[in-house]
């Protein structure tokens, strides 16, 4: 076991753990944000640079700090390592610049985009971004592409995290899409407008951190914060059938996989569950999905609090007063 200290929190982790994974084990606000790293997909990470951290002490044997900031998603932990994330001003300043870089080519069409409200880049720039843009040149512009019947590709919004490429490579047989061209001109594409029609290809929508790949069956149907997420499952031969259905009134407007606190898919679901079953009779609804209180999705949705949770603290205060 290796001992690592991240923002003054010390934890023991098995060998081969990266700094980001160790930080996620500690949890809370010290976890570096990640746009391209996806723990369920092999080979992801190291592209977006939002997870850069400062290593103040390399290891027990070598007490020197690392010369440059390192990408926490791809740097393995060493014994006695001391890492600074939110405690280092250098890291925060760099993150601000990186968000600015990511937004250079990202159009600010959040009012139109279906991902708004559950977008990683939106959250990231809300927390770390600048209010204004200093960039004067034009942004990259591409026509919109329908990849198959159910997926829409807005290449304008893509931040080239490669998550979708890894997802399709690893979840399905046969590679059908990838990143074409180089540098500024690079874009996600299928070979000569091929459609992606594997059984699990719909998961590219869920792994996409921005609104580059969106669900065509949900296109402009509703904003995500007007729909109510419910945990639901169904018998499915190809996948686990565990999903989240997003309800508008009593209708299902879309189906997504269940995502954890780091916005990563818990279990990938098949296209049949995602696109073809939009009747409430197809699903067994388990109950409302827990959504982070700070998310816009939980705005105007109220939860019942158990009475004991309100009354007991009040009772305690009254008893304390009576004792005095």
């Amino acid at each position: 076991m290796l001992q690592v200290t991240i923002d003054n929190h010390t934890i023991e982790v098995p060998e081969g753990t990266t700094i980001l994974q160790a930080a996620r084990m500690i949890g809370g606000s010290i976890v570096p944000p990640a746009m391209c790293y996806f723990s369920k997909l092999k080979g992801t990470g190291g592209k977006c640079r939002t997870c850069l951290v400062r290593v103040a002490k390399s290891s027990e044997k070598d007490a020197r700090p690392m010369p440059k900031l390192v990408a926490s998603c791809s740097t393995p932990v060493q014994h006695g390592m001391v890492v600074e994330n939110t405690t280092s001003q250098e890291v925060l300043d760099t993150r601000k610049s990186i968000v600015e870089f990511l937004l250079i080519n990202h159009p600010l069409d959040c009012p139109v985009c279906d991902q708004a409200g559950e977008c990683d880049l939106q959250n990231l720039s809300y927390e770390h971004g600048l209010e204004n843009t200093r960039y004067e040149e034009g942004r990259r512009e591409f026509p919109q592409v329908d990849i198959g019947e159910n997926i829409k590709l807005h290449m304008n919004r893509c931040i080239l995290c490669y998550r979708c490429v890894y997802a399709v490579n690893q979840l399905t047989n046969g590679r059908v899409h990838g990143v074409l061209y180089r540098g500024d001109a690079s874009e996600i594409s299928t070979f000569i407008q091929n459609s992606i029609d594997n059984e699990f290809s719909g998961n590219v929508i869920d792994v996409c951190p921005v609104g580059a790949l969106t669900d065509r069956t949900f296109r402009f149907r509703s904003r995500v914060w007007f729909t109510k997420p419910m945990d639901a499952h169904r018998d499915c031969k190809t996948c686990s059938g565990k999903a989240v259905v997003w309800m508008t009134g009593n209708d299902i407007s879309r189906v997504t996989a269940r995502k954890d606190q780091f916005n990563e898919v818990e279990e990938f679901i098949c296209n049949e569950c995602r696109f073809d079953h939009k009747n409430t009779t197809d699903w067994v609804i388990e109950g409302p999905r827990k959504i982070d209180k700070t998310s816009v999705i939980s705005a105007n949705h109220y939860e019942k609090i158990k009475q004991a949770a309100i009354i007991n603290p009040v009772k305690k205060i009254i008893e304390k007063q009576a004792e005095k």
């Binding site: 009012p111 708004a116 007007f226 705005a299 105007n300």
Partner: peptide
């Protein structure tokens, strides 16, 4: 553009 921010 029906972004829904006024409604929220």
């Amino acid at each position: 553009t029906a972004c829904g921010l006024c409604a929220v």
